[in-house]
Computed example of a mutant assay.
Amino acid sequence: MRWKAIFVASLLSLSSLALAQSAPTGKIFRYADGGSATYYQFQPSQEQSQSSDTYIFFYGGTGCVDFKPYIPKFFSGLDSNSTIFALNKRKVEEGSSPNTCSPEFAKFDLPQQWFSDYMEFITEELGRAKIKPKNVVIVGISEGAYPAVKVARSRSDITNLVIIGDGGGWTMRKSLEKLTSPSYVQDGWATIATDSGSTTRTWLGRPYRWWFDIMDIDSLPDYLSLNIPILMGHGELDQGVPVESAIALQKAFQAAGKSNLTLHIYKGADHTLTSGQVSNRESLFAELSKSLKH
């Protein structure tokens, strides 16, 4: 079925973006349990300042995507006085290919691991800051929205949340039912349930265990619990997460009488907010940078 190829491509779409010409060398973050992950730290300006009043933490992208090839182009639009941290998942080394995820990677590529790793990384980096940043922003990309909103809810030091390519109003199951059909998803779930702990058997390109853990995560209560500004960008033609999911989130905020969500739906844009040859991420990030100055 053609939609299956489109869906898988959408989930892995970070790897299809135009590559940058240069990027900082990766650093190694060591977790308390002995594990480690590669991350990148940089400022958008070539003339880096000694201190920064804004820390921006990026996380996301389905599969074993290394952030390095997309620095700094993916982050265009962000203010030069921001310090950006882009954290790879565990077992994603600097220079690794998104098409060759290792068996070890699959064992750690799970929502609860994303959350705990992201929490530990942010705590450590904020603790290292010589001057406490005025703004601490979390950016969740695609599946990275799951840990991003959960981290934002779990911490008191996050000032802003930005979400790209994940609506938040629907579960993965409901999004898949919209993209395919309820019967197709039900059949797939029955297959997954036969070996739900497997990290080697796959459905739609992802391990059974990944699907089992992520399929019914409901992030709506996490979003509604937040009072910090939430900036969300969604492509009108997103084939990975239906735009209706973002619209459902917006309606839920309106029903709750909350006004801290700003949703931009980009006409003709895909999962990465790209419309043809135009990236709408730059305008989204520019809006974020402008809001942080007020």
Rank of each mutant, 00 (worst) to 15 (best):
A5M: 14
A5K: 14
A5R: 13
F7R: 03
S10D: 10
L12V: 00
A18R: 10
L19E: 05
Q21K: 14
S22D: 08
S22E: 08
P24Y: 06
G26S: 11
Y31M: 10
A32Q: 12
D33K: 06
D33H: 07
G34S: 07
G35N: 11
S36L: 13
A37Q: 06
Q43C: 15
Q48N: 11
S52K: 09
I56R: 04
T62W: 08
G63S: 09
F67K: 01
F67S: 06
P69N: 06
P69Y: 01
I84Y: 09
F85P: 05
A86V: 00
R90P: 15
R90Q: 07
S97H: 05
C101I: 04
P103K: 06
E104A: 15
A106Y: 15
Q113R: 14
W114P: 15
W114H: 15
S116T: 07
F121Y: 10
E124S: 15
K130E: 13
K132A: 15
N135I: 01
N135L: 14
V136Y: 01
V136T: 02
Y146Q: 09
A148H: 01
V149A: 04
V149P: 05
A152I: 02
R153E: 10
R153M: 13
S154E: 06
D157S: 08
T159V: 05
T159K: 03
D166H: 14
G167N: 03
W170I: 03
R173H: 03
K174G: 02
P182F: 04
W189T: 05
T191N: 10
S196K: 14
G197H: 00
G197C: 04
T199N: 13
R206G: 14
Y208W: 08
W210Q: 09
D218P: 04
S219M: 13
S225Y: 01
L226E: 01
M232D: 00
E236D: 04
V243L: 02
E244R: 01
E244N: 11
K258S: 03
Y266G: 08
G268P: 05
R281Y: 07
F285Q: 01
A286C: 11
E287I: 08
L288T: 00
L288Q: 00
S289I: 03
K290R: 13
